[in-house]
Amino acid sequence: MIEFDEIEKRMLLKLVYYGPALSGKTTNLLRLHDLLERNGRGDLMVLDTKDDRTIFFDLLPFFLETPGGLKIKIKVYTVPGQVKHDATRKAVLQRADGVAFIADSQLAEAANNVESFSNLEKNLAIVGLDIENLPLVIQFNKRDLQNIIPEADIKRVWEPTGIPVFTASALQGWGVIETFSRLAELTYRNIDKRYGLKNNYGLDSETFLQKLTRKTEGTGYI
């Protein structure tokens, strides 16, 4: 749910990385932090973790200003994936403007993906968000591992739903920006429809994406 202050010309967006435990949500954010230019984004805020497991959430903020003087802050959150932290997931999911679902490609994790996705559907309903109208992308992470679900199977299952699906290895750094860009693009489309970002503030989709995903000079994939 976009927070928009017309007088101060400020807009606050919230994107949430959802998914089962250990599917690489924090790694996605870490990678975004490393790959994207420092100008226009804040530091990655990793709230207290225990044994490298997220308890509360991680937060990567972005900030950009349009030619029309509109200031847009985009906060990208991760949720804790462990089942027991459902209350935290609900709190973080509140008022989200877009969701990236990070699935674990390992065959052994298939059931956890399904369970987590149902949990997402359930919690979206609880916090009053409509999954049909919410920008949503799916990333099958950990493509660098063995014993993973074949890409053909992913396509067969997800293509009919119309939800954009990406494959990635957050560890190796590929597929991460693509996932984020698409989520940002869908989110832009939603806000533009409501607030006329292009007409009123001179911000088109390309500029929006370009400002958000400027890569650090000389940084390639690891």
Binding site: M1, E3, D5, E6, F57, Y77, A91, V92, Q94, R95
Partner: peptide, 11 residues
């Protein structure tokens, strides 16, 4: 303006 004021639960 009250209309645009939204309280975030977190953040």
């Amino acid at each position: 303006t009250e209309s645009q004021k939204i309280e975030y639960i977190v953040g």
